[in-house]
Amino acid sequence: MKTYGSEPGAPSPVQVGISELAVSDGDDTLKSYGLGSCLAIALYDPEDEIGGLAHAMLPDGDAADNSDRKPGKYADTAIRALLRRMVERGASYTSVEAKIAGGSDMFEFDSFGEGVGQRNADAAREELEKLGVPLVAEDVGGDHGRTVEFTPGTGRLLVKTSDEEENGVTEL
């Protein structure tokens, strides 16, 4: 969700709502809540300590006519928009790495076909490969929700599930 008046280094985490993306640096925290089939895509440049988080909802933006207006909505256009904004901010394309989380398939409805979450993760992997960005870690699929917290400076991606007993928090 967009915030107004947030300054760099502000202590409160910036919420990245569905179809949104945000680029930042250092110790800022970017956070996306309650991902089910949506996909969190985190890109970062470990040398320049610049990174960004997208909360994508659908796989294929090239096939949609509103992806110019909402690049963060689609896995492919979100990755390109993150990269562009990071490079504009001083990141070097060749050192950027990626982590993804989410893309669960919570329901087995007939209309869902082979899985709406799965498609999002596949689309992200494909786009990253096309752009030559290494995917260094992922926590995708399954049938549970995830909340992610991303620190652009270090590239640390915390993945929380609602299961308190086992694997409540995973660090990617």
């Binding site: 809540y33 309650g34 909802m57 669960s104 919570m106 087995e108 409805f109 709406v116």
Partner: peptide, 23 residues
């Protein structure tokens, strides 16, 4: 359909539906 039971983060149980309709 038959019911699907989910005990998890609230938003995570709703987002698959909007992902599906969103296309």
């Amino acid at each position: 359909s038959t019911p699907e039971f989910v005990h998890d983060m609230g938003a995570a149980a709703v987002d698959p539906v909007i992902v599906k309709l969103g296309s």
